[in-house]
């Protein structure tokens, strides 16, 4: 494991912790897209099918369990928690899941490395993860005042994707035959979706003003 990969995983972990902190301690999910969280739960459920068939390392298994557990508990909190669910911006969070899920499934059925159930599901999870942030970005754009924790959550998620690209560049040069076009293209697309957000995030940070995305 290289430093970029580790830093990427830790940033991903931090993003989840920031979100859980907001939901668990402040008891609010204002500005958080349930649609995006449900898509992430689906991403991890379809990607980590190998958790029961292949053992890679303790680190790998533990992280998979954390991402599965946290994504499903976040969805549970927003949908069912007595207090948290009242802060959910239902009327603003209107992105339709299937507009992302169906094209990703079709693409995975046609463009994959190997036509097996596990491999197609893995590929579907890569495509879906690439676009899963869209409902959250749309919601941020509609939210007038984005609170610090929500802003940091999205920033950390974007940073995690960026660090994975450096990880792939590093692995390409240090490991023989390390070529995964599908993973790389999906990962680059995913990172590019954050470009606009990053721009406004740094601007607000530089000028010390509240983060606000132009409509």
């Amino acid at each position: 494991m290289n430093i970029f990969r580790l830093a990427g995983d830790m940033t991903h972990l931090a993003s989840v912790l920031v979100l859980l902190l907001k939901i668990h301690t402040i008891k609010s999910c204002a500005g958080v897209s349930l649609k995006t969280q449900e898509l992430y739960a689906l991403v991890f459920a379809t990607r980590y099918l190998d958790i029961v068939t292949d053992f890679i390392s303790v680190y790998n298994t533990v992280m998979k369990l954390i991402f599965l557990g946290s994504s499903f508990s976040i969805v549970w909190y927003i949908r069912h928690h007595r207090v948290v669910r009242r802060s959910y911006d239902k009327d603003q969070d209107t992105f339709r899941h299937y507009l992302l899920m169906i094209p990703c499934m079709l693409l995975a059925l046609f463009v994959h490395e190997k036509f097996t159930f596990k491999e197609v599901m893995w590929t579907f999870s890569l495509y879906l993860e690439a676009v899963a942030i869209l409902p959250q970005l749309v919601l941020l754009q509609r939210t007038r005042n984005i609170d610090n924790l929500t802003g940091q959550y999205v920033f950390l998620l974007g940073a995690y994707r960026g660090l994975y690209i450096f990880n792939w560049i590093y692995r390409y040069f240090t490991e023989p035959h390390f070529v995964h076009w599908i993973t790389w293209i999906a990962g680059v697309v995913q990172t590019l979706l954050y470009a606009d957000f990053f721009y406004y995030y740094f601007e607000s940070w530089k000028n010390n003003v509240r983060l606000q995305l132009p409509a």
Partner: peptide, 10 residues
């Protein structure tokens, strides 16, 4: 990591 389906990344 040679295109075989051992996915060691998260």
């Amino acid at each position: 990591t040679d295109g075989e389906s051992t996915h060691d990344e998260l």
